[in-house]
Design a protein around this nucleic acid. Structure first.
Length: 349
DNA sequence: TACGCGTGGAA
DNA sequence: TTTCCAAGCGT
């Protein structure tokens, strides 16, 4: 049997039932692909269902305002996906007469859609012969072919892209692409795949050379930079103040409280101990502070450490960059997961 | 071209 | 606790 035949055979017996696999609507497939970028199915699925319910078609999405889209995306991360999704929905509504484009190069030209997503949409929705090359495919092919070239290098990516296109079953692009990704996601997994029962173990180079746990090879190591945030939850007569984050950093377009970011853990700890009130006053120009009403709380979110302070003001906080928000309506705004979780824990939401 | 962008789960 | 990973993309 051919590679494709074995793969598709495996898929038909082992595939998961997922909502975006029951449709050929390019809008729904597009939405699912954007949500699933760098995101696990279990994490993305509830968001897909929410979005389909609220925006059943591309025109509904195009007619929404960006804040609502961001609010629905809240907690999923990589928020530029949501902004680009909304931007492209408007593009399709205006420049494509509300119809999702039918050809690969038109699809590929849309903002937020790269090589992978364009191939996914073109094949899943229209059965066009474009091979998907994602993390799953690169892992499978680098193992199967015994490719030692780093998959995060240009050379390695090129090798695997060409291999993927050769392996593609041009008679069944949609089925084949779904199958190879599902096989990577659930069987040829990064850690400890069950090679003994693998349908390819008689022809897999990595298995033959006992190099499965070394492939795919990556040259770069993931680096995590720790950051230290102090948030000041200002309260003047039951209202608080929010700032909409700008580009050039995380959480673009999301709302947050008055922030001071410490440059080091030392500064974070120092501010915590003594400099707090001075710095707050300097930062916010808010005048007097009732120190007795300050509450503290620390949340860790992998690499961001945040401290929250509740501060009652004796006069309003005047700053044109901030909007005044009654506490009861806080949940109408798209907030970073970290802040949202804190507000829930403190029963503020 | 290399890097930054979120979050949650697993080891 | 730390590191790595998961259906990538824009700049």
């Amino acid at each position: 049997m051919s590679f494709s035949a074995i793969l598709i055979n495996w898929y038909l017996k082992n595939k998961r039932e997922l909502p975006w696999r029951k449709t050929s609507d390019p809008y729904k497939i597009w939405l699912s692909e954007i949500i699933l970028q760098q995101t696990r199915v279990e994490q993305g699925l509830p968001y897909y269902l929410k979005f389909i319910q609220r925006f059943p078609d591309v025109k509904k999405l195009a007619n929404a305002n960006e804040d609502e889209v961001m609010k629905l995306w809240q907690g999923l991360g990589y928020y530029s996906r949501a902004r680009n999704l909304h931007f492209t929905a408007k593009e399709i509504a205006t420049k494509h007469n509300g119809k999702f484009p039918l050809h690969y190069h038109e699809i590929r030209a849309l903002k937020g859609i790269g090589d992978y997503t364009a191939a996914a949409i073109a094949s899943f929705a229209y059965n066009l012969p474009y091979a998907v090359v994602d993390g799953n495919v690169m892992r499978i092919l680098s193992r199967y072919l015994g490719i030692n070239e780093a998959i995060d290098s240009a050379v390695g990516k090129k090798m695997l892209t060409e291999a993927a296109q050769e392996f593609l079953d041009v008679k069944n692009p949609a089925l084949y692409n779904q199958a190879i990704m599902e096989f990577g996601a659930t069987y040829c997994v990064p850690l400890k795949p069950d090679c003994e029962k693998c349908p390819f173990n008689n022809s897999c180079e990595a298995f033959r050379l006992k190099k499965v746990n070394e492939l795919p090879y990556k040259s770069k190591k993931t680096k995590i930079t720790k950051r230290y945030f102090h948030y000041f939850i200002l309260d003047y007569k039951g209202k608080t103040y929010l700032y909409k984050r700008k580009s050039g950093d995380i959480w673009q377009g999301l709302y947050e409280f008055l922030l001071h970011e410490a440059k080091s853990q030392l500064e974070f700890d120092e501010l915590l101990k003594s400099q707090l009130l001075k710095d707050v006053a300097k930062h916010s120009k808010m005048g007097l502070i009732k120190t007795s009403s300050i509450k503290k709380h620390i949340l860790s979110h992998q690499h961001i450490f945040a401290q929250f302070y509740h501060i009652h003001l004796n006069k309003p906080f005047i700053n044109k960059r901030y909007i005044e928000v009654p506490f009861e309506t806080l949940n109408n705004y798209a907030l970073p997961r970290l802040i949202h979780r804190y507000l829930e824990e403190e029963k503020i939401l």
